[in-house]
Amino acid sequence: HMTFVALYDYVASGETDLSFKKGERLQIVNNTEGDWWLAHSLTTGRTGYIPSNYVAPSD
């Protein structure tokens, strides 16, 4: 899985979304859904959809 880092805080707007904090590391499970990607937080262990423009590839 690709690892990304959150650029901003995001508060989930629905049950399927994943809240995260700036700097949180996320594994992308599925990024074929356009602007919303299914991600797994390496910080909280939770999985949900995130806005793709809130994250950047982590080196």
Rank of each mutant, 00 (worst) to 15 (best):
H1L: 12
H1Q: 13
H1P: 13
H1S: 13
M2R: 13
M2N: 11
M2I: 12
M2W: 09
M2P: 13
M2G: 10
M2A: 11
M2C: 14
M2Y: 09
M2S: 11
T3A: 07
T3M: 13
T3G: 06
T3Q: 09
T3V: 15
T3R: 06
T3W: 14
F4Y: 15
F4H: 06
F4R: 04
F4W: 13
F4L: 07
F4Q: 03
V5R: 04
V5I: 14
V5A: 04
V5C: 06
V5S: 04
V5K: 05
A6F: 01
A6L: 04
A6Y: 00
A6N: 01
A6R: 00
A6T: 06
L7P: 02
L7V: 07
L7A: 04
L7D: 03
L7E: 04
L7S: 03
L7T: 04
L7M: 08
Y8C: 11
Y8T: 06
Y8A: 09
Y8N: 06
Y8W: 13
D9S: 07
D9I: 01
D9V: 02
D9Q: 03
D9F: 02
D9C: 05
Y10Q: 01
Y10D: 00
Y10F: 08
Y10R: 05
Y10L: 03
Y10W: 07
V11Y: 10
V11E: 13
V11C: 12
V11W: 10
V11Q: 12
A12N: 04
A12D: 03
A12W: 02
S13L: 13
S13M: 14
S13R: 14
S13I: 14
S13C: 14
S13T: 15
S13G: 09
S13F: 10
S13N: 11
S13E: 13
G14Y: 10
G14A: 13
G14S: 14
G14F: 10
G14W: 08
G14C: 15
G14I: 09
G14P: 03
G14M: 10
G14D: 08
G14T: 13
G14H: 13
E15D: 14
E15H: 12
E15N: 11
E15V: 11
E15G: 09
E15I: 10
T16N: 14
T16I: 09
T16K: 13
T16P: 05
T16F: 15
T16M: 14
T16D: 14
T16H: 15
D17C: 11
D17M: 13
D17A: 08
D17L: 10
L18T: 04
L18A: 05
L18Y: 03
L18C: 04
L18K: 01
L18W: 03
S19F: 05
S19C: 05
S19Q: 05
S19K: 03
S19N: 05
S19T: 09
S19D: 07
F20C: 04
F20D: 00
F20E: 00
F20I: 09
F20M: 07
F20S: 00
F20W: 01
K21G: 06
K21M: 11
K21W: 05
K21H: 10
K21Y: 08
K22T: 07
K22I: 07
K22F: 05
K22P: 01
G23W: 05
G23C: 05
G23R: 02
G23M: 03
G23Y: 05
G23E: 03
G23P: 00
E24N: 02
E24W: 03
E24Q: 04
E24M: 02
E24L: 01
R25C: 12
L26S: 00
L26M: 10
L26Q: 00
L26E: 00
Q27W: 15
Q27E: 12
Q27M: 15
Q27T: 12
I28P: 09
I28V: 10
I28E: 01
I28C: 06
I28M: 06
I28F: 03
I28R: 06
I28L: 07
V29N: 05
V29Y: 13
V29F: 11
V29G: 05
V29W: 14
V29A: 07
N30T: 09
N30Y: 09
N30P: 06
N30L: 11
N30C: 11
N30S: 14
N30G: 15
N30W: 10
N31D: 12
N31P: 12
N31K: 15
N31R: 14
N31G: 14
N31V: 12
N31F: 14
T32L: 12
T32W: 09
T32A: 12
T32V: 09
E33N: 15
E33S: 14
E33K: 13
E33T: 13
E33Q: 15
E33V: 11
G34S: 14
G34C: 09
G34R: 13
G34E: 11
G34F: 09
G34Y: 08
G34A: 14
D35C: 11
D35K: 11
D35Q: 12
D35T: 12
D35H: 14
W36L: 07
W36T: 06
W36E: 03
W36V: 06
W37T: 03
W37R: 02
W37P: 02
W37Y: 06
W37E: 01
W37I: 07
W37N: 02
L38V: 07
L38Q: 04
L38F: 12
L38D: 01
L38M: 08
L38P: 02
L38C: 08
L38R: 04
A39D: 00
A39P: 00
A39T: 02
A39G: 05
A39Y: 01
A39F: 02
A39L: 01
H40I: 15
H40G: 03
H40V: 15
H40W: 10
H40D: 03
H40Y: 15
H40N: 07
H40Q: 13
H40S: 09
S41W: 00
S41I: 03
S41M: 02
S41V: 02
L42H: 06
L42G: 04
L42V: 08
L42D: 05
T43C: 13
T43F: 08
T43M: 11
T43D: 15
T43I: 12
T44L: 04
T44P: 00
T44H: 03
T44F: 02
T44Q: 06
T44W: 02
G45R: 06
G45H: 15
G45F: 07
G45Y: 06
G45Q: 06
G45E: 04
G45S: 06
G45P: 01
R46F: 08
R46G: 08
R46A: 10
R46V: 06
R46D: 07
R46Y: 08
R46M: 13
R46S: 07
T47H: 07
T47C: 12
T47V: 11
T47F: 10
T47N: 07
T47P: 01
G48R: 01
G48W: 01
G48Y: 03
G48Q: 01
G48T: 01
G48D: 01
G48N: 01
G48K: 01
Y49S: 04
Y49A: 03
Y49P: 01
Y49K: 07
Y49C: 09
Y49G: 01
Y49I: 07
I50W: 00
I50T: 01
I50N: 00
I50Q: 00
I50M: 02
I50K: 00
I50P: 00
P51V: 01
P51A: 03
P51N: 06
P51L: 05
P51F: 04
P51D: 04
P51S: 03
S52T: 06
S52Y: 09
S52E: 03
S52L: 04
S52V: 07
S52A: 13
N53Y: 10
N53Q: 11
N53V: 09
N53M: 10
N53R: 13
N53H: 13
Y54P: 01
Y54W: 07
Y54I: 06
Y54H: 08
Y54L: 12
Y54G: 05
Y54M: 11
V55P: 02
V55T: 04
V55M: 06
V55H: 03
V55W: 04
V55E: 01
V55C: 05
A56G: 10
A56H: 08
A56D: 06
A56C: 09
A56L: 08
P57G: 07
P57R: 08
P57L: 12
P57Y: 08
P57T: 08
P57N: 07
P57I: 10
S58I: 15
S58T: 13
S58F: 15
S58D: 14
S58C: 14
S58G: 10
S58Y: 14
S58A: 14
S58H: 14
S58E: 15
D59H: 15
D59Y: 09
D59N: 13
D59V: 12
D59E: 14
D59C: 13
